Amino acid sequence: MADQQDDLRALLIDSGEPTWERDNAKTREEVDRLDNVTLNIAVTGESGVGKSSFVNAIRGLKDTDEGAAPTGEVENSMVPTMYPHPTMPNVNLWDLPGIGSSMFKAETYMKDVKYQNYDFFIIVSALRFKDTDMMLANEIKKKKKDFYFVRTKTDRDVTQEERKGVREEATLQKIRNNCLDNLRTLGPPPVFLITSHNLERFDFQELVNTLERDLPDNKRDALVLSLPVYSKECLKQKYNTFKNAVWAVAITSGAIATAPVPGLSLACDVAMIVSFLTKCYYSFGLDDKTLERLSERVNKPILAMVRESSLVMAITDKSSLATKFAMRLGVAGVVESLCRFVPVVGSVAAAVLSFSTTQYVLLEEVEELYSVAKRVLEMAELN
């Protein structure tokens, strides 16, 4: 009995909570971050500055992909339009109508677009930030919402200036100075230079780092997991988020194992593992559609390489994945069932065994998916 109590105390120390009940409550909050926390991002600015392309890029889509926000120089968003993330449905990008248009006057813009529905605003410009952008920023500040300035189409400016013999660093500094000069009455706030067609260039990672710092924990995790994999740093952030969440799923597994219902623990463990690894698979960009787009872009057979992973192929076939883990967890399930017949300490032993088994399996499989995703980045030559 002492050994089992020691094991239970070790679990509580790992979680930082004083009691099993408090630990379970904390666990439910952690699991909820992966499943149910909604993040609503508003993308706004004048017409024709690249808002829709930015929305598509954040969702990991090209402008020509099915489900992409329509793009063009003419304003396409006549009403706030929600575009759910294609694989993380709890993350929504909102393409807002251009401020200052005939239907959306700057003076009433915040009310008209229902500002209270969004977690933060991205104010987009392509050439320079104008008076309407600054007016919008001031109105957002009054409503106690966060906003960030994004200067898009930076690659075009760099290319045009290179034709004149101007180096990229000089062009970027010129653009930054121009943006800061236009926004000087606001502080000036930081400005992030990006190109929606190649997120690994310029300041997109700095934008993400800033958002992570500013967002509450639950919203931050939703953001990190939804972003397309555009760099090794981005992938590492996703990996750490999933790795940190493993203990929460394992604790849930342990709590379920204490219930005296035959077969319940095994069925729930399999369902949780399948769900967790499927989220990881999509977040790491290992699904066929994402890899096909990447293969086309870099002209390399990346999809074929990924299909060499038995785990990736099992996730592609959901029934195969469930069978795989049902067989793997079966022996531990039998032992858990036997433990419950032991008076007093049996349920604790079952909880510890279920926790340990689920944690081990998830850490091992997340590591495997991370290894595959790193090989994808190396093959695509993305740093």
Rank of each mutant, 00 (worst) to 15 (best):
L180D: 09
R184N: 15
T185L: 15
G187T: 15
P189S: 13
P189T: 15
P190R: 15
L193S: 11
S196Y: 01
N198Q: 07
E200C: 05
F202Q: 08
D203M: 13
Q205T: 12
E206F: 13
L207R: 10
V208G: 04
N209D: 14
T210C: 10
E212L: 08
K219Q: 06
R220D: 01
A222N: 07
V224P: 00
L225R: 10
L225F: 01
S226A: 14
L227M: 09
P228Q: 01
P228H: 02
V229C: 05
E233V: 06
E233D: 12
T241R: 13
T241F: 06
F242G: 12
K243H: 12
N244V: 06
A245S: 14
V246S: 10
V249Y: 15
I251E: 13
T252A: 15
T252V: 12
T252P: 06
S253H: 08
S253Y: 10
S253M: 09
A255L: 13
A255G: 09
I256C: 06
P262C: 07
G263A: 11
L264P: 00
L264R: 04
S265I: 01
L266W: 06
L266C: 02
L266Q: 03
A267N: 03
C268I: 14
A271C: 07
M272Q: 10
I273T: 04
V274I: 11
S275D: 13
F276T: 06
T278P: 04
C280D: 05
Y282S: 08
Y282Q: 08
S283M: 05
S283N: 02
F284E: 03
D287P: 01
D288N: 11
D288A: 14
T290Y: 04
T290G: 04
E292W: 06
E292T: 08
R293S: 05
E296Y: 03
V298R: 00
V298A: 00
V298Q: 00
N299P: 00
N299Y: 00
N299Q: 07
K300G: 02
A304Q: 05
V306P: 03
S310H: 01
S310D: 03
L311P: 00
L311I: 03
V312L: 03
T316I: 13
T316E: 14
T316M: 14
D317H: 11
K318W: 09
K318R: 14
S319A: 10
T323Y: 08
